[in-house]
Design a protein around this nucleic acid. Structure first.
Ligand SMILES: [Mn+2]
Ligand SMILES: [Mn+2]
Length: 553
DNA sequence: CATGCGGGCG
DNA sequence: TTCACACCGTCTC
DNA sequence: GACGGTGTGTCTCGCCCGCATGGG
């Protein structure tokens, strides 16, 4: 199956067309039932086109935007653009300029060209050719002129022709079907072929695909459109009105839906629309939504309602983070309501000390340099070391070929990495990994994986930060039991616990090690850093906080 | 004309 | 374009 | 001390070219 989607060789001048055809074939074979009639007609129609228009279409799809100047579509391997464009126009996949907005006109043409074509308008606006292009656009855009065909902007025909691609929406949908997301694009094929990206080869089965139904895809695309509008600055009210509120049962779709709800509610909070924010949080399952809802109730002075919800939450906290937030919130609510102080177990204490150092830009580096000795080196590792050791030890678990986890050859992680059953579904592999730790025979396999897989994309291993000397030293010094404790906590909540680890690791001259979180003046521990430090204290894993003051002048 | 930026490309 | 972190201003006890 | 908002770097390569900009 993976051979079907392998990138084409770059020796072929039409390699990009081969790759596009690979995706079309793949979609047609594995996702044919998700296509509607028009999409099916497009996929079949591409195959029926002569090679020149087919290749030009592919070039346009893979470039950015939907608008192109004919004179910028020059490809030696395709030949003249005009006949190819004519063929594409005949099937309706491109059309001549159509209505061009002023911004589009300015994006297509250079300042010099616009100076000619728009000479009259510019003169009327009192602009000469010495101003800046952005100022021209601002001046001519006030009041906003109606979009019009190129001839409407440029009656004398100074400007070269523009063409508009009309099939971008269907191509985006195909991209989504293939990749399961829209942040990967067609360049994956080339960069993989070049060796710039390396992905772990995982056997794919025909049933593996991200979307089961057309409804899943439609919902995903709708949500994506809503999110883009929101991020473009459209008011939360308008976006919320269009936000579909169904439930597809597809975890990836639903996660996006709840995340967008969370962001909209957050925006309403900022606008002091607390009632609406609270109502939206109430139907939002994104992590932290319940904590935000509590905060909103508190801000509205609804202490009684807040306390009721807080007690519900405390009875079944959704995460350690929520437990931590509740431990701060409940005393506040009790005070407001005149209730006795609740008993809250204080977190275990972590050793802390203060260093006074000559001023320098990079606090972590300054502390590392100050503490480092020949027989006691210090590395700036933050999340990369422990997470990397875990990723190396559990490589086979992470890339286990479970149904539905991998559906194309360019995945750096299984699709269900953050889903609740992730660990359980791979317990066979994880049990092996933890057994290796229990028997203290993890070092060989970790080092071996480091050598074999170096450079291959992994959700846990950041190769640039994990040199062999660091790795060997860490393996020598870190007890297996510490690694096991770390791994268990990470697996308990991968998303929340993959960050927040201390800045430095110090390999002490006595043959041990110590993790050090550096805090410059005005910087304080983040919640996730506190949780890790509390855990390390419980587990007897050596960790400390180093506060830094800059030496006075 | 030097410089910086961003798109296109393999 | 997302995310983790640093930094800073505020409010409160 | 708690909280929230904002800014920053780094995400995915390295190279080339066209373009905009501003100073000489
Ligand atoms: Mn840090
Ligand atoms: Mn720090």
């Amino acid at each position: 199956m993976d051979s079907i989607a392998a990138p084409a060789t770059l020796d072929d001048p039409l390699y990009y067309l081969r790759n596009f055809e690979t995706v079309l074939r793949w979609v047609s074979e594995c996702h044919g039932d998700l296509l509607d009639a028009a999409e099916r007609a497009f996929v079949d129609g591409v195959a029926a086109l002569p090679v020149a228009p087919r290749a030009l279409l592919t070039r346009m799809v893979m470039r950015s935007g939907e608008l192109f100047r004919a004179d910028k579509l020059r490809y030696p391997e395709i030949g003249p653009a005009t006949p190819a464009l004519t063929a594409l126009e005949a099937v309706g996949w491109v059309r001549r300029d159509g209505d061009l907005a002023l911004e589009e006109l300015f994006r297509l043409y250079t300042k010099a060209e616009l100076g000619c074509a728009l000479a009259a308008r510019l003169a009327a606006a009192g602009l000469d050719r010495h101003g800046r292009k952005a100022d021209w656009l601002a001046a001519l855009g006030e009041p906003a002129p109606a979009p019009r065909p190129l001839s409407g902007w440029d009656p004398d025909g100074h400007l070269p022709a523009a063409w508009r691609l009309t099939v971008m929406p269907v191509c985006e949908r195909l991209r989504l079907m293939f990749f399961g997301n829209l942040h990967q694009d067609w360049r994956e094929f080339v960069l993989t072929e070049l060796g710039t990206f390396r992905y772990e080869p995982v056997a794919l089965d025909a049933a593996s695909r991200p979307y089961r139904s057309r409804a899943d895809l439609d919902a995903w695309l709708d949500l994506h459109a809503c999110r883009e509008r929101f991020e473009a600055g459209e008011p939360a009210d308008a976006v919320a009105a269009d936000l579909p509120d169904g439930d597809t049962g597809n975890p990836w779709v639903e996660e996006r839906r709840h995340k967008l709800r969370y962001k909209l509610a957050r925006q309403w909070e900022r606008e002091d629309q607390l009632e609406r924010a609270e109502a939206l949080y109430a139907q939002c399952q994104y992590p932290d939504a319940r904590a935000r809802r509590l905060r909103v109730l508190e801000r509205r002075g609804e202490y009684r309602a807040a306390l009721t919800l807080a007690e519900q939450a405390a009875a079944a906290p959704e995460s350690e983070q929520e437990r931590q937030q509740l431990a701060r919130l409940r005393p506040r609510l009790h005070r407001k309501l005149g209730l006795p102080k609740p008993v809250v177990a204080p977190p275990p204490t972590t050793e802390a000390w203060t260093l006074t150092l000559p001023a320098s830009g990079f606090v972590e580096g300054a502390v590392a340099a100050h503490l480092s000795r020949d027989d006691g080196p210090v590395f700036y590792v933050e999340n990369t070391l422990l997470t990397g050791l875990f990723g190396l030890l559990c490589w086979d678990a992470v890339f286990a070929p479970l149904p539905g986890a991998f559906f194309h050859p360019f995945q750096s992680a299984p699709a269900d990495l953050y889903q609740p059953g992730f660990r359980h579904r791979r317990r066979r592999w994880f049990d092996d990994a933890f057994a290796a730790l229990a028997d203290d025979r993890h070092r060989g396999p970790i080092l071996d994986t480091w050598r074999r897989k170096f450079g291959t994309a992994s959700p846990f291993v950041h190769w640039g930060a994990l040199s062999e000397p660091l790795l060997t030293l860490a393996l020598e010094r870190l007890p297996a039991a510490h690694l096991a404790a770390y791994g268990e906590r990470l697996l308990g909540d991968i998303k929340a616990n993959r960050a927040g680890l201390p800045d430095l690791i110090q390999f002490t001259p006595d043959g041990g090690y110590r993790l050090i979180e550096v805090k410059g003046p005005g910087d304080r521990l983040q919640d996730n850093q506190r949780r890790w430090l509390a855990f390390f204290a419980e587990q007897g894993i050596p960790a400390a906080v180093c506060k830094v003051e800059w030496a006075g002048p």
